[in-house]
Design a protein around this nucleic acid. Structure first.
Lengths: 233, 233
DNA sequence: CGTCTCATTGAGCCAGCTCAAATTAGGTGG
DNA sequence: CCACCTAATTTGAGCTGGCTCAATGAGACG
């Protein structure tokens, strides 16, 4: 659990240009709202319109709710990530904590009005949005064209890149999300996720340590199973 | 077929703020490259890194290529749209013309360097990227959690919103894309797309006119089949 | 060390895929 | 304007990967 001051300081260092005036700095500060989410707590995004979210500490999932409690996890975010949550339209969205997390939220319209004069902030936001878009497109490819085995390979590689710890060719992962979360992110069921992980273990591609630990023994093997583009012309 | 001058003029009116100096205007102009694509022609995005694309005329698809010629259509874009194409990494991307099209491309790094001082341009770009992201997330939800029938409903409603012509409660569509394109966009096969359209026709939800004409007889009926959020708490 | 939730494993089913054939829209040339 | 040609689409039949339902196993925490 961290204080508002600490959270905003992290945000400012990362997002606001050093050249920003104290007055502008304070205006941004007045827009920020700190949300402290314990494990599994979730923040519904509703009336206040599109939100800009900064993860100061922890790990979160962005969930879209469709009919009949069919939920799709749209993205995972970790400490330091900035992302946008749409206002509800055909779907409603929420941000949930995978671990205890502290996040700052800003009403998008207010934030953008304030950032309009600050090219540096806009650029930072644009870069992050473009990154979110690239990741979302890659997820689209996985969900549209890949089978369960490939989706798991893609997922593990993506997590390795974001929260993996490399040690002599192997990559250690401490996954903050449950099998259910993985399934809801990949458009599969928990049973299928479990079966595919078992298969990868049997094939000596990964090792598992309890519920959350996974070691990628040979990332290159996984890459071969991810269905990425090869030497296409 | 339009000239470079015409295409850039369209772009400038829409994207560049009126207040922009002539000098800056000319610098943007010098970055633009006009690509004239006849029906089915495609533009591979390769060495030059991330691109920013403006569709001056026509209709295009953004295709991601995975292994074994499994292609996923990531988005459709129509005249006036601005979007970003990632540089190749795990997948390679291309832009193809559904109809004869004229598009302007900009190397993203150059464009952003130039736009760094122009908050208006950055804002416009950010808005468009956020819109692309929202659409991509909705596609993710469709591909992750919806069956074929729902995906078709979502697709038709999205197209109705973007290129539909409403007339007393019905919406007319002249789809520029083939069944194969629809299938590659929705993560289905052309056979499944065809069968679902036939079913919708049998159920008097749509009418078809030749290959490309579709009339939504009762958009509200389609909305009911799209698996959107209902009165969820 | 009990308990509770999460994860794994098993068995059978079905939506959408694959392969194959028939039909038709829409251009093309006479 | 019409007959023809070709590729796109539709329709049919059977198969299968991942889902559903059900039971068992195993971490985590008091």
């Amino acid at each position: 659990m961290i204080t508002f001051a600490q959270a905003f300081e992290l945000f400012a260092c990362q997002v606001l240009p050093a050249s920003l005036t104290d007055a502008a700095h304070l205006r941004f500060r007045s827009l920020a709202i700190l949300r402290q989410l314990v494990h599994d707590a979730s923040l519904e995004i509703g009336e206040d319109g599109q939100q800009i979210v900064y993860v100061a500490r922890g790990a979160t999932k962005l969930v879209a709710h469709a009919s009949q409690s069919r939920d799709q996890i749209v993205a995972f975010h970790f400490a330091g990530d900035v992302f946008t949550v749409p206002e509800p339209d055909n779907y409603s969205y929420s941000v949930s904590a995978l671990r205890d997390s502290d996040i700052l939220t800003f009403a998008s319209t207010d934030f953008l009005a304030l950032a309009a004069g600050e090219a540096g902030v806009l650029q930072y936001l644009l870069e992050n949005t473009t990154l979110s878009l690239r990741r979302c497109r890659e997820k689209t490819i996985a969900l549209g064209r890949k089978n369960a085995r490939e989706r798991l390979a893609v997922f593990l590689l993506a997590m390795a890149e974001r929260i993996g710890v490399e040690q002599d060719g192997r990559v250690g992962l401490d996954l903050p999300m449950s099998r259910r979360d993985i399934a809801e992110s990949l458009g599969l069921t928990i049973e299928t996720v479990s079966r595919q992980l078992t298969k990868l273990r049997d094939e000596r591609v990964i090792e598992t340590l309890g519920r959350s630990g996974i070691v990628l023994l040979k990332p290159s093997l996984l890459r071969g199973r991810a269905g990425f583009m090869r030497e296409a012309a």
